[in-house]
Simulated scan of single mutants.
Amino acid sequence: MTYAQLLAKVAQWMSRDDLTARIPDFIELTEERLNRHLRVRQMETAMPATALTDGLITPASDVIDAKVLWATGYETTPLAAQSLESVISSGSYGPPSMYAWEGSSLRVDGVGSVQGVLYVRIPALSTASTNWLSEQAPSLYLFGALFEAAQYVGDDPSLWQERFDQALSDLQGNDQRRPGPLVARPR
């Protein structure tokens, strides 16, 4: 579904001509909500080995979270997500063992370099026209925008909330049900 198609569909489902100018706001609020709650493989991006500078790494501006990080050369030992206070107080000797967000940067204890997998923001439909989410789960956009519209006009948003939550759960569940190796079991 393209951005233009979504605008038309939301207007059609709302059956209100007086809110057409607000629909882009409803979609933007939906995207903000999705970026806070959704973490699926389509949002993952590899972070190559990056040298620590004063214990910090500043990822790209579209990075919203870390899935897993590890010290280069220690791929089997993921860094533990900790509070910023814990990371700062642990010092900066030896290979890194933990990290925390410090503003838009990652604070890491230890020295060397870190690599891993990060989550990036869903590209905004208003600038991209389409994105992986509008193609794979357009109902999330529709139900999210209708939820925002219902709140805006003072209607009960619970129906749209339920449908949004179900679509979100379905997408996350499908992402977690990746096929594994076949295991032979005795009869």
Rank of each mutant, 00 (worst) to 15 (best):
A137I: 01
Y99A: 01
F143P: 00
G112R: 03
A149G: 15
L118I: 14
T130M: 11
S104W: 09
Q161D: 10
S104P: 02
A81I: 04
R163V: 00
P95K: 13
S105V: 05
F147Y: 15
P123E: 03
R163C: 03
S90Y: 01
L69Y: 03
V68R: 14
L146V: 08
S83P: 03
I122Q: 03
D109H: 05
G116W: 05
E102C: 04
S97V: 10
E162I: 07
W70S: 08
Q166P: 01
L146E: 09
G110Y: 11
W70K: 00
G154W: 10
L118N: 11
S158N: 03
L79E: 01
S126K: 13
A128D: 12
A137E: 07
T130L: 06
L133H: 08
Q82C: 02
L79C: 04
L79H: 03
T77A: 09
M98V: 00
L118G: 07
Y119F: 15
Y152R: 04
I122K: 07
Y152F: 15
R121H: 06
V117C: 03
A80L: 12
V120P: 07
V153N: 04
P157V: 05
P95L: 04
Y119W: 13
G103P: 10
I88P: 00
P123R: 05
T130E: 15
Y93M: 06
P95T: 10
G110P: 10
A81D: 07
Y74D: 13
G116I: 05
T130K: 10
L146I: 11
I122R: 06
S158I: 07
S134A: 15
F164N: 02
D156I: 11
L146R: 13
V153D: 12
P157Y: 11
Q115G: 08
S129A: 14
F164H: 02
A80C: 00
Y152N: 12
Y141M: 14
T76L: 10
L125D: 09
Y99N: 00
L142R: 04
G154I: 11
D65E: 14
W101S: 08
E75P: 01
G112T: 02
V108I: 15
E135N: 14
Y141S: 08
A137S: 13
A137P: 03
Y93G: 02
K67L: 06
G110V: 07
P138K: 11
E148M: 14
Q115V: 01
P123L: 07
L133P: 08
F143I: 00
L159E: 11
R107W: 05
G103C: 09
S83I: 02
L118F: 15
M98E: 06
Y141V: 09
Y141C: 06
G112N: 09
L84P: 01
G154R: 08
G116M: 06
D156C: 06
T72R: 09
